[in-house]
Lab assay of single mutants.
Amino acid sequence: PKCKGCFKAIVAGDQNVEYKGTVWHKDCFTCSNCKQVIGTGSFFPKGEDFYCVTCHETKF
């Protein structure tokens, strides 16, 4: 599969995040607002966007 963030291949051994059939490298899975890496931490999906806890609390 290819990462939705950088469009490069995800190979065995890469740390990745999967959500609803889409996959990202862990470092490519970032907050849509502040761009900080969410990685495998908590996040809030809103449509096609993903927000870290801090930005979600501030924005919504």
Rank of each mutant, 00 (worst) to 15 (best):
W24Y: 02
K26L: 06
P1D: 15
N16R: 14
G5K: 08
V11K: 07
C6S: 01
H25A: 01
K35F: 02
T58L: 07
D14F: 02
K26Y: 02
V37D: 04
W24E: 03
N33G: 04
I38V: 11
N33S: 08
C28L: 01
C34A: 00
C6R: 00
V11F: 07
K46W: 05
S42I: 11
A12W: 05
D14W: 07
K4T: 15
T58F: 01
Q36P: 02
S42T: 14
F44H: 14
A9Q: 07
C6E: 00
P45W: 03
T58P: 06
F50C: 10
G5A: 13
H25F: 01
T40F: 11
K4L: 14
V37K: 14
D14C: 11
D49M: 11
K2I: 15
S42Y: 00
D27R: 08
W24F: 07
G5Q: 05
T30G: 12
T54E: 13
F50M: 03
V17H: 10
C52N: 02
P45D: 04
K20Y: 14
F50A: 07
K4G: 01
K8V: 07
Y51W: 15
T40A: 05
D14N: 05
H56P: 02
G5M: 05
A9T: 05
T22Y: 07
V53A: 08
A12T: 14
G21N: 01
S32Y: 09
Q15G: 07
Q36D: 14
K8R: 04
T58C: 14
P1H: 15
K46A: 14
D49F: 14
G41K: 11
F50N: 12
D49H: 15
C31Q: 01
G21C: 04
V23E: 13
K2D: 15
F29P: 03
K35A: 12
S32R: 09
F50T: 08
A9G: 05
Q15Y: 07
C6A: 05
S32G: 08
Y19M: 10
E18L: 04
F60L: 10
F44A: 11
V23R: 09
T54S: 11
G47W: 04
F29D: 01
G21F: 09
F50V: 07
G13C: 13
I38R: 03
T54K: 04
K35Q: 06
G13S: 08
K35N: 05
F7R: 11
G39E: 05
K26Q: 11
N16Q: 12
K46Y: 14
I10W: 04
T40W: 14
V23N: 04
F50L: 07
C55K: 01
I38S: 03
H56V: 05
P1C: 15
N16A: 02
D49Y: 10
H56R: 11
K46N: 08
C3A: 04
T22W: 11
Q15N: 10
T54H: 13
W24G: 01
K46C: 06
Y19W: 11
G13V: 13
G21H: 04
Y19D: 12
T58W: 04
G13Q: 09
K59L: 13
T40D: 11
E57N: 02
C6V: 00
A12E: 05
F29M: 11
G47E: 12
F7C: 13
C34Q: 01
C6Y: 00
S32D: 07
Q15M: 06
A12C: 14
Y19K: 09
F44R: 07
G13N: 02
D14R: 07
C28P: 01
V53M: 09
S42P: 10
H25T: 02
K2W: 15
Q36V: 08
Q15D: 14
K2V: 15
I10T: 14
S42W: 04
C55S: 01
G39N: 08
E18T: 12
E48L: 12
V23H: 13
F50D: 03
D14Y: 12
W24V: 05
W24R: 10
T54P: 07
V11A: 14
C55N: 01
Y51E: 04
S32C: 09
C52D: 02
C28M: 00
Q15W: 01
P1Y: 15
C55M: 00
E57F: 03
F29I: 01
E48K: 14
K2M: 15
G39I: 02
N33T: 08
V11M: 09
G13W: 08
F7Q: 15
D14M: 05
H56D: 05
H56W: 11
K26R: 09
F29S: 03
G21E: 08
G21L: 11
P45E: 05
K46H: 07
K59I: 04
C3E: 15
Q15L: 09
T22R: 12
W24I: 10
V37L: 09
D14L: 12
P45K: 05
H25S: 01
K46M: 15
G41D: 13
I38W: 04
A12Q: 12
Y51C: 10
G41Y: 05
T22E: 10
Y51Q: 05
G47D: 07
C55G: 00
G39L: 05
K4H: 15
K26A: 07
S32Q: 08
V37S: 13
K4W: 02
A9Y: 01
V23D: 14
F43P: 09
K20M: 08
A9C: 01
E48T: 11
V11S: 10
F7G: 08
K26V: 14
A12S: 06
T30W: 15
G41E: 07
E57K: 12
Y51G: 03
F29V: 12
T22F: 01
H25R: 00
K2C: 15
Q36F: 08
V11Q: 14
T54D: 09
T22L: 09
Y51N: 09
H56F: 03
K35T: 09
K46R: 13
C55Q: 00
F50I: 04
E57M: 07
T22V: 12
P1Q: 13
K2A: 15
A12F: 05
H25K: 02
C6M: 00
K59S: 12
S32K: 13
N16I: 04
P45G: 02
I38F: 06
D27L: 08
F29Q: 04
K8Y: 11
Q36T: 15
F44D: 10
Y19A: 13
V11E: 09
F43D: 03
